[in-house]
Amino acid sequence: MMAELVIFNGIAAVIQDAIVALIPLSLFFILFQVTYLKLPLGHVINLFKGILFTLIGMILFLQGVHIAFIPAGNAIGSFFSMNGKAWILIPFGFFLGMLATYAEPAVRILSDQVEHSSSGFIKGTLILYTLSIGVGGAVALGMARIVIGFSFLPLIIVGYIIAIILLWLSDRDFVAIAFDSGGVATGPMAVTFLMALAVGVAAGIEGRDPVIDGFGLIALIALAPILSILILGIYFRIKKVKSS
């Protein structure tokens, strides 16, 4: 990191980027508004105030990631790997993954949704713990892959094959929820900090390629809630059969 305040470094590019990102959606809406919707003008102005909030929010978010989480993740990753203590990142990854999931509001909403779909058979707290441990395990596995150096392809293929098998065994209502839940753990925190951490570790360990070894963590994190919810779906199905 640089020994000066860098909070506005590169902000012009970020602003331009955010504007370019939001223009297509806005034009699409205007086209629909003119041809079909014809909503009252006051309402449309309010909607565009929302877009303005989104724009400012996106600029602050991208800039914040750029000056806080990416350098911090890189620094911590290379600190552990260069001091020969890279293995610490495996339990540390487990802890971070678990904590991030436990603290994520979207996960709470999902837990309630699953409890509801199982008509209360499966408690929200059980889902919360399963998801937190599942994501923690995924991050630990992702870190272990970089530290020990095994390849990604067999890992992800086995993961997906297990998902396909579980999908046919699980309760049908749980299947849609499970696959939609892949996103709950890959929120902005995971994407920004954990990815930067992984890239930092891969850059710091001799013989690792940051492009090949630094990425892949998000994919493992996304798979964890899917497998967790599918397993809960099988558990629910068995419970349902037993009780009827």
């Binding site: 640089m2 929010g57 602050l60 800039q63």
Partner: peptide, 28 residues
Amino acid sequence: TDLVNYSLGVLMLTAGITLFLIGVNNGL
């Protein structure tokens, strides 16, 4: 200075996600 940069960055990011979500809920 790194710690100050980091802390300011986290504040920006927090404010950013908040504004972004409010904007999405009221616009997109």
